[in-house]
Simulated assay, not measured.
Amino acid sequence: MIIREATGRDWPSIYPFFRQIVAAGETYAFPEGMDVDQARPWWMEQPPGRTVVAVDGDTVLGSAKMGPNRPGRGAHIATASFMVDPAHGGRGVGRALGTHMIEWARSAGYHGIQFNAVVETNAAAVHLWQAIGFEILATVPEAFAHPVHGRVGLHVMYQRL
């Protein structure tokens, strides 16, 4: 597996699993029903952010977007979002993307990383982020409308670099 900068040519490979994950409604509060052109700016970051892909040969296994959490006086804290193609889950793609993001943020001079909205019922993600050094700072109760569990909390997670 190689992690590299995403290019415009990668978007057609990212969009199918982006659409599938957003449509499932269990982990992201993105607008539903976006076509390929509407969804692109939600995932393909512009500088100072960046988007990467995890690939095995020509196959895109997953992707992450990252950059400053807030502009101006909040720009010293990074943030990121991650999606792994469900067809390639269980292969360590999420961990590799998370580790890559931490290394990138550290080398870019960020002071810390804040995840603003990790759905509390997304046990695999919560476990992974805690395993690589993030802590839950707070949980906003009933902030996410989950299609199975109803209103569930969103964790704010943080790692100081």
Score class of each variant (00 low, 15 high):
residue 70 R to D: 03
residue 154 L to C: 11
residue 74 G to S: 08
residue 152 V to D: 04
residue 146 H to K: 03
residue 95 R to H: 14
residue 85 D to L: 04
residue 105 A to H: 06
residue 66 M to H: 11
residue 115 F to T: 00
residue 92 G to T: 06
residue 110 Y to G: 01
residue 147 P to H: 02
residue 96 A to Y: 05
residue 102 I to M: 10
residue 145 A to T: 08
residue 78 A to R: 10
residue 128 L to I: 10
residue 32 E to S: 07
residue 95 R to C: 04
residue 35 D to M: 02
residue 141 P to C: 06
residue 135 E to A: 13
residue 147 P to M: 05
residue 138 A to C: 06
residue 46 Q to T: 14
residue 102 I to P: 01
residue 49 G to E: 09
residue 137 L to Q: 15
residue 144 F to G: 07
residue 31 P to L: 12
residue 143 A to H: 09
residue 147 P to E: 08
residue 138 A to P: 01
residue 81 S to Y: 01
residue 145 A to P: 01
residue 73 R to E: 03
residue 123 A to F: 12
residue 122 N to I: 06
residue 92 G to W: 14
residue 43 W to G: 00
residue 59 T to K: 14
residue 125 A to T: 13
residue 102 I to H: 06
residue 89 G to A: 13
residue 142 E to L: 07
residue 45 E to N: 10
residue 93 V to G: 06
residue 114 Q to P: 01
residue 86 P to K: 10
residue 95 R to Y: 14
residue 101 M to P: 00
residue 124 A to M: 04
residue 143 A to T: 06
residue 32 E to D: 13
residue 142 E to H: 15
residue 50 R to L: 11
residue 43 W to C: 03
residue 97 L to C: 07
residue 92 G to K: 12
residue 55 V to Y: 04
residue 84 V to D: 11
residue 52 V to Y: 14
residue 81 S to L: 01
residue 89 G to W: 12
residue 99 T to W: 07
residue 145 A to M: 02
residue 44 M to H: 09
residue 118 V to E: 12
residue 100 H to L: 04
residue 62 G to K: 02
residue 86 P to V: 05
residue 65 K to C: 13
residue 62 G to H: 08
residue 83 M to D: 13
residue 122 N to D: 15
residue 56 D to I: 00
residue 135 E to T: 15
residue 97 L to K: 04
residue 70 R to E: 08
residue 153 G to F: 06
residue 49 G to M: 08
residue 46 Q to L: 14
residue 130 Q to Y: 05
residue 94 G to A: 15
residue 126 V to M: 04
residue 73 R to Y: 00
residue 66 M to R: 09
residue 137 L to A: 13
residue 143 A to V: 02
residue 110 Y to L: 08
residue 155 H to W: 11
residue 146 H to N: 09
residue 98 G to H: 10
residue 97 L to E: 13
residue 58 D to G: 11
residue 107 S to I: 11
residue 48 P to G: 11
residue 142 E to F: 04
residue 139 T to L: 00
residue 93 V to S: 03
residue 43 W to Q: 02
residue 139 T to G: 01
residue 150 G to L: 07
residue 89 G to T: 15
residue 135 E to G: 12
residue 152 V to Y: 03
residue 144 F to Q: 06
residue 117 A to F: 04
residue 124 A to F: 07
residue 45 E to I: 01
residue 40 R to P: 02
residue 49 G to F: 10
residue 81 S to P: 03
residue 99 T to R: 15
residue 76 H to A: 11
residue 95 R to V: 03
residue 115 F to M: 14
residue 56 D to H: 13
residue 32 E to N: 07
residue 144 F to V: 05
residue 64 A to Q: 08
residue 127 H to P: 00
